[in-house]
Amino acid sequence: MALNIPKNEEYLSLPDEMFVIGQDDAQAEEIVRPSTTYWHDVWQRFRRDPLALAGLVVLAVIALMAIFVPMVSPYSYDGMDLASMNRGPSLQHPCGTDQMGRDLFIRILYGARISLTIGLAAAAISFVIGVVYGGLSGYIGGRTDMVLMRIVDILSSLPSLLYIVLIMLLLGSSVGSVILALCLTSWVGTARVVRSEVMRLKHSEYVLAARLSGANVRQLLLHHLVPNAMGPIIVSTAFLIPSAIFSESFLSFLGIGIQAPMASWGSLANYAIPMLLSQPHQMFFPVLAICLTMFSLNFVGDGLRDALDPRMKK
């Protein structure tokens, strides 16, 4: 009966003369490097992108100037000085003055306040609507999902400018109505992204575990599904900011957006058209502000995309 079968442990333990080089049992459980979180990792990747970093700095400078310079400046956005009309750039007026003697520098900074507010507000509201709409659509699925997505298809199959013009006519021209008009059309993209992410994640084990422990739909979406889909959602929201600023300046340039005496970059460019030949600086500075901001926002968006999801990098 003595079959001489070795006990299991004898297979597992290495003979004394064999050992793994560089492996010490005492160190096996030791953590050599500090563990990083996902967001720390993202920042590490973002930091290595010089364009994105430069964009972030430019945006910060523009935002800080837009907030603080009007507080200390002797000029206001509607203060006319008929004695100094159409002046070129000087020490007194860094960007010159316009047809009514208003300081262009301060008007551009007020324009920055309006443009940045509109961009951020439109993106934030679209983010909320998109997360709720797309999250519910993706989570519930089935017939509800089909109906909700058909509505999105209908909204997105037409150029949003058509809706925006109609809404602007209905509400009148003000900062609030521009934001509302932009929000009503721009949440669609975010909703699509959230929906597809939620559909991808909703059969994961941790979602099942949460459901078994009695989480309701709101908890599932806000605490489990959306946080795990945050990368793509942030990327799509980040690109909403430049597109909102783009649309606002477009509307104001056509004379449908922000109305005088308030200034936005688009309307400043619009006022400068008749003076283009004699006073090119009145066009140059607002246009420079728009281009700088748009470039920075797009670079930051690209950097965020590469940092949040390295697989998407082209």
Partner: peptide
């Protein structure tokens, strides 16, 4: 990045 009206102008 650059809006159409900027390029046009």
């Amino acid at each position: 990045s650059v809006p159409v009206f900027v390029i046009s102008v």
